[in-house]
């Protein structure tokens, strides 16, 4: 308990006997269970995993090695689709967008959720409890419906923004115009997910032993110092977890632009994000092979990005073994 950061830095596969010293003396029993029994427990999940993840993925990879034109048959083209993807301005443009988006969105999202969690951890009034629930609430709303609501709120004709600006005789900016779409989408995503991240951080904060704060207080630290020097470091593994989630989610950005595309007046294009591009290649243009290649290329980029991130935060062990 005394140092949770150390706990967090440890690889998750502590398996047998992570709880303390006695485990070292029980090698014998561990050996005994080095059998196939483990597979019996994992088996049901493994079957689902193989059928609905490994097999489709393998099939998608297989598809990505072929090319099919409308006027030609399917031919084996090896890595041609990947070469094409990495020279395709649509794909590269989409990657560039999601990278920039992640770079701006994630810090903002983290700032909102972390500051909210710290405040909620520090004060326990009735209003704070109410606020905690309200901030968390958007997580209960399906992304499809959330995006639909924001589409209405962004409306230049009958949305509240227009009314607000109308009071001053001005025209409201359209949050989904080509110049504003970055911020317009960022707002929707922050609204949808910040509460969820806040709850995770909050839960981690609640697990900290308050005695630590008392000690700091005695040393003369104020609340701000306690928050920055004790609380934040102690929940750093929660923060890393959230960052990884946010990074993966942002690089695979799809639902919100897909829904808001309909009301974006053309600023969200079919190749806006790599995932959207893959979806449209597959379902609109019947290029399943190329779509599979794009998805794979994206998967590789996500993997590299997460790995780099974890490398820099020196927490590799806590997420990826």
């Amino acid at each position: 308990m005394a140092n949770e950061t150390a706990v967090a830095a440890r690889p998750p596969l502590r398996g047998t006997g992570a709880t303390g010293s006695p485990s070292r003396t029980r090698r014998g029993s561990s050996q005994r269970r080095r059998s196939a029994t483990g597979w019996l427990f994992i088996g049901p999940f493994a079957i689902v995993f193989i059928i609905f993840l490994v097999a489709p993925l393998a099939y998608a990879f297989y598809l990505s090695l072929f090319s099919k034109g409308l006027a030609t048959g399917t031919t084996f083209t090896g890595i041609d689709n990947y070469v094409k993807a990495f020279t395709d301005p649509s794909f590269l443009g989409g990657i560039w967008f999601v990278l920039r988006f992640a770079l701006v969105l994630i810090p903002v999202q983290m700032a909102v959720s972390l500051s909210a969690a710290l405040v909620l951890d520090a004060i326990t009034t009735r209003f704070a409890r109410f606020a905690r629930l309200m901030i968390f609430l958007p997580y209960a709303i399906p992304a499809v419906i959330g995006a639909l609501m924001w589409g209405f709120l962004y409306s230049p004709t009958f949305g509240p923004l227009q009314q607000l600006f109308g009071l001053f005789g001005a025209n409201a900016p359209f949050p989904l115009s080509p110049d504003n779409v970055f911020g317009g989408l960022m707002n929707v995503v922050t609204w949808q997910w910040a509460g969820y991240y806040m709850i995770i951080i909050y839960a981690a904060l609640q697990g900290i032993d308050p005695a630590l704060y008392e000690a700091a207080k005695i040393d003369g630290a104020n609340s701000w110092q306690v928050a920055m020097r004790i609380k934040v470091p102690l929940v750093s593994s929660a923060l890393v977890l959230i960052l990884v989630f946010a990074l993966i989610g942002t690089l695979q950005f799809f639902t919100e632009p897909a829904i808001l595309r309909l009301v974006s007046n053309g600023s969200i294009t079919p190749d806006f994000t790599p995932n959207l591009y893959a979806y449209n290649q597959a379902f609109s243009y019947a290029n399943f092979n190329y779509a599979s290649a794009i998805s794979f290329a994206l998967g590789i980029i996500v993997f590299i990005a997460v790995y780099i991130f974890l490398f820099f935060t020196r927490k590799r062990g806590s997420i990826l073994s």
Partner: peptide, 16 residues
Amino acid sequence: GTQDQFTTDYISGVVG
């Protein structure tokens, strides 16, 4: 105008 058609904004403009 340059508004996408079939959207609620467009219809609202048509009505108005």
